[in-house]
Structures are given as C-alpha cells and as structure tokens.
C-alpha cells in the first residue's frame, strides 16, 4: 500500500526523467552513429578522435571552463566567508541571488554595452589617460562575463557549508593554538570542502558547453565544444557530428562529477 502510493507520487517525476532526460540522451547517442546520408557508421567518432581541430576545441573548452571555475572560486570563497560574518545576511544573500533571475541574454547584451568601444569601461580608461582598448571579443572578457554569471552558483553552496560550521569549533581551533590563517587552512577550508565541491560541479560542467556568451562576448574567436555543437546543428546541418560532440561532452561531465564527488564512503554526517 505505502509502496504503491509512494511510487505514484514518484511517477510524474519518473515520466519527466524519461521524456526529457533519458530519451534525449538516448537519441543523441543513437544519432551520433549516423553520417549525413543516414547510414550507420563509426566515422563521426573516428573523425573526432583523428582531427586536431576537434581535439584542440575540446582542450580549449577545458581550459576555458577551468579558468572560469578558478576565477569564480577565487572570488566566491572569500565573498562567502565574509558573508557569514555580516549582520543582515539574508539581505545580502538575496542581493546575490537577484541577478540570476534576470535573463542570461539580457545580461550578455548589457555587457556588450559596457565593454564596447563607446562603452563605460572605455570612457573610464580614456578619462584616466590610457585611451580606449579592445575589450569585447577577447578571451579575457569572455572569462570575466562567464565568471560573473556563475558566481551566485558558487557562492551559495560554499556559504551554506560555512554557516553550518559551529562557531565553537573555530574557538576550539584557536584554543589549541591555531591563529586565523592556520584555522582557515586546517579547519574552515576542509570543513567547507563539500560546498566547494558542489560549487565547482555547478560551475565547471555548464561552463564546458557555453555557447551564447561565447558568441556574444567572445565573438567568433573563442570556439568551444558548445559553439561547435551549435554550428553543426544549425549551420552545417551535420547532426551526426554534433551528436558525437554532445556524447563526448556528456562523458566529460560524468567524469567531472565522479572526480568531484565526496570521497568518504557512507557520507560522514555532521
């Protein structure tokens, strides 16, 4: 009785998973084995693995995703740590979540305005005597904007793991002779590792397949797996090859998740 009722609650979600997760993934895998003439073939994978263009693209995506994640982490960890010590924490958290409610495209267009030749950043650079620079369509602006968009998804899990730390444990660390830096390295960072892990997961994996920001902010100079998939599906119409890259991306995502998964078995609870 309870089992069946529990199953019926779950069935809607199961249907959702079936139609919108399992079926699309199966379709992509299936499609990746067909060439332009709808013949079954392994040629797409052979092409992918033998082409320096695709391999460089993969490496590129990796490097960009890594840089974006690193920058996001470097900004988010201190910010999250500082947040836990503020008075009106709920308000500050709301202010951090707020930008995520705004459409991604709108934010990207806003940055185009800010970074363009006649934009506010170049106005400022002219004002202090450096003169206008090419900012838009550079690797740096791409990484910066991607990091800006991802920061809330990094701050929140880290913040949550930091507020979970009992202040008495910090006191105990000081009491045993650790100064602030030692307490940070030996207690606070290890104890917030789970938050960092889930933050890295939720930033690194989406960063691998960015394509909108890549186009709008990075111009066509930055080519990643995300932009390659878009190209194959919408421009060259080579769905087989696009699906192959998609499969590669999915495999990379699984590997990333396995690498960043909590190491301790049985999940030690606090």
């Amino acid at each position: 009785m309870t089992r069946t009722s529990r199953l019926s609650y779950f069935s809607l979600y199961l249907l959702w998973i079936l139609f919108f997760v399992i079926t699309p993934v199966a379709l992509i895998v299936y499609q990746s084995f067909f060439n332009l003439n709808h013949q079954f073939t392994l040629q797409n994978y052979r092409d992918y693995l033998s082409s320096s263009v695709y391999l460089r693209m993969t490496l590129n995506s990796f490097i960009f995703a890594f840089l974006i994640t690193l920058l996001t982490l470097l900004i988010s960890y201190p910010a999250a740590y500082y947040l836990t010590r503020l008075k009106h924490r709920q308000l500050w958290i709301l202010l951090i979540i707020l930008p995520t409610w705004i459409n991604l495209l709108l934010k990207a267009y806003a940055f185009i305005g800010i970074f363009s030749q006649a934009g506010s950043v170049n106005h400022f650079l002219t004002f202090i005597g450096i003169g206008p620079q090419q900012i838009l369509f550079t690797n740096m602006s791409f990484v910066l904007v991607a990091a800006y968009i991802q920061i809330p998804f990094m701050i929140l899990p880290i913040y949550n793991s930091l507020v979970d730390i009992d202040p008495a444990i910090i006191n105990a660390s000081h009491d045993l002779g650790a100064n602030n830096v030692q307490t940070l390295w030996r207690v606070i960072i290890p104890m917030s590792a789970n938050g960092v892990r889930s933050g890295v997961q939720s930033v690194f994996i989406p960063s691998l397949s960015l394509f909108m920001i890549t186009r709008l902010i990075g111009g066509n100079r930055v080519i990643t797996l995300g932009t390659a998939i878009e190209e194959h599906f919408l421009t060259t119409m080579n769905w087989g090859m696009g699906s192959t890259i998609g499969v590669v991306l999915i495999i990379i995502m699984f590997i990333t998740m396995m690498l960043t998964a909590s190491r301790r078995k049985g999940g030690v609870k606090r």
Partner: peptide, 17 residues
Amino acid sequence: EKRKVNTVFQNYALFPH
C-alpha cells in the same frame, strides 16, 4: 592561541573532518 590554557567545550567542538 597564545595562551597556555586549553578548554573542553560544552558540546565538545571536536573536528568532524
């Protein structure tokens, strides 16, 4: 951290990691 005094805390405050 510079005092030669140690404390046993109320809820022990042991390091869970």
